[in-house]
Structures are given as C-alpha cells and as structure tokens.
Computed example of a mutant assay.
Amino acid sequence: MKKICIVTDTASGLTSSEAKVNNIVLVPLSVLVNGKEYQDYFELNYNQLNELLREKSDIKTAQPNLGLLNDVMLNLKSQDYDDILVFTISSKLSGTYQAFILAASQNQMTNVSVVDTGTLVGSQRYVSLCASEMVRAGKSKEEILYSVNRVLHDTVTYLLPENLDQLKRGGRISSRAAALSSMLKIKIGLVLENYGNAFEKFATTRTDEKLFQTIFESMKKEGFNVDTHKVFILHAEGISQMNKLTSSFNKAFPHADYEIFDLPSVIAAHAGLNTCAIQFILKI
C-alpha cells in the first residue's frame, strides 16, 4: 500500500486535534492585525480574533506565510511519501492554491497534487476528512482524487452576515451599499456557487425567516437532496441566529444529515461577528 499524506489549510475549520487524529497536516493561513502577522488558529485562536473584531481592529487575511509553507513542504519531502494530496480554500478567494504549487515546484516535489476545492470551511473540511478515510482504507491517489473532484462540483455556500460592516472594511462591498442595508434594516444573503469568483448578493428580505426560506428554495433548485447531500451550519458567535436557522432547516428538511460548528477565524475576519452560513455538498 502506498504512503499517502493529506494536507489542508485552516480555512477548512479543522482543529489541530481533529487533524492529528485523522493524520492530516494542517497549514495555517495568515492573519494580519494592525499590520502584524499571525498564524491563523495556532497563534491567534477563534476567541482572540473575535475579541479583536469587537474592538474593530484592522484585520486582514492572507495565504500561508511562504517561509512557513516552505518548511512544511521540506518536512513532508523528508518523510518519503509516495503521494501528497493538498486540498486548499478556493483559489478565487485566496492565493493559497498557487502558494502550494509554487512551494512544491521550488522543492522539486513531483509527488504533490494540489486540489483547488473551489470552496471553503465545511465542504473543504469534508473532502479532507473523506480523503484521509480513503487513505486508511487503502485507496489509491487516483481513486481519492476522482471521488473528491466529483463532489466538489456539487457544493454551494450561503453566507448570512448580521450586517455588512466588516465586509465594507475589507473593501468587499461599497460603503454606500453597507449604509443603505443598515438604514433599511434589510437582511442580506450572499452565495458562493461551484468554483464561484466571489460571494455574490443572493437575496434581500425584511425578515430572517423569509431569508431562510429563500435559501431553502434555492437549495432545492440547486439539486440538494437529503439522501445524497451533507449540510454544514456554521456561525461566528451567532448562537441565536444559528438556532433560528437550524430550527427552520429542520422543518424544511426533517431528515437531513448536518453538522454545526464555528466559522474559522479567517472567514469571520471578513464576514464579521454573528454571521451564519449554511453549505451543502454531495456525499462521497
């Protein structure tokens, strides 16, 4: 049986303990706070970043530190893996995919396959964990990549920010749009479809429940089926909103397979506190 290593980044939402148990190498993205660089999760955890968001610190995110990434790749090279499979956050949202390709090339590692998942968080986490499970089951690199690529073309992410303030600070929407949304008390939903270029405005409603129902109808149109898809419900300290979303989801899809967990810091840094999200992906 070939020796295969699975690698992903912290946009997956995996914790270090989950990664260790599943033999996954977890590489941190970078978080810049008031100009100072930190390793996401390892040097700046979820609670610390949320506190900085409350303080309205200047927070930006970036691909993994190139020096750190080079060290990671050299360490992997020394372990004589037959294949190294890397599953990154969408290349349309981060430079992480290209950074891994560059690091592999610079270290002459021809056994590295870098997969642009075209997504993030729950779906990225799911394929990384499934790939790890397939390694333990003795599957080949080709079998793993086929299974993963098949489901990555059937995943959609809906983002429900409490407001657009943090997105405005990051330059992802205009100040005028953010101010108008706040003044009119409009609920806004954003969507990232398969390999989408960015989160796009999906719906505007007056109430949370109307926004939830609009999302559920969209999920059906996108082919979501409780028997064939897995769902992730995520939040950044948005417990109340998450509970409302989960309750409505259970009524709409009473037999769905879903998990709930925190939005990673690098996502909350852009979307803001009290943001919720819901994703689905075809099961492997």
Rank of each mutant, 00 (worst) to 15 (best):
R125D: 02
Q108N: 14
V114S: 08
E133V: 01
L93Q: 06
Y81N: 02
A99S: 15
R136N: 09
V121F: 11
A131G: 07
K92D: 13
L85H: 09
A131W: 10
Q98A: 09
Q124L: 14
R136F: 12
Q79P: 09
Y126R: 02
T110R: 10
S140H: 15
V127Y: 11
D116M: 03
M134V: 08
N107P: 02
V115I: 15
M109N: 10
V72E: 00
S113T: 15
I101L: 15
S78N: 11
M134P: 04
T88F: 11
S123N: 12
T110K: 14
T117Q: 13
A137H: 09
A137D: 09
V127I: 15
V112L: 13
D80K: 14
M134R: 14
L85R: 08
M109V: 07
L93T: 06
V135S: 08
G138H: 13
V135T: 07
L74M: 15
V112S: 06
S94V: 02
V86F: 05
Y97I: 00
G122E: 07
L93G: 00
G118F: 14
I101Q: 14
V121C: 14
L74V: 08
S140Y: 03
L120A: 08
S78P: 04
S140N: 03
V135K: 12
Q79D: 02
T88M: 05
V127G: 01
D80P: 00
C130N: 04
L76F: 01
D80L: 08
A103C: 11
D71Q: 15
F87K: 03
S128M: 12
T110S: 15
V112D: 09
G118T: 03
D82Y: 04
Y97T: 06
L129E: 06
K77G: 01
T117I: 09
S140P: 14
Q124G: 07
S105A: 13
D82Q: 11
N111C: 10
Q124R: 03
Y81C: 05
N75Y: 13
R136L: 15
L74Q: 15
S128K: 06
V112T: 04
I89Q: 02
M73S: 03
Q106E: 11
A104M: 04
A99C: 02
M73Q: 01
L129I: 13
Q79T: 00
S123Y: 01
F87W: 11
Q79L: 03
D116L: 13
Q106Y: 07
S90F: 03
M109E: 10
M134N: 02
L102D: 11
S123V: 14
M134E: 11
Q79C: 04
S132R: 13
S90N: 05
A104N: 04
S94F: 03
Y97R: 00
L93K: 02
S113W: 09
V72T: 04
R136T: 12
I101H: 05
Q124D: 13
Q106L: 12
V114T: 05
L102N: 06
A104F: 07
S105Q: 14
T119W: 12
S94K: 03
G138E: 05
A99F: 05
L76C: 05
N111Q: 14
S78I: 08
I84G: 08
I101A: 05
A99P: 01
Q98P: 00
Q79K: 15
I84N: 09
A137K: 15
L102V: 11
S94W: 09
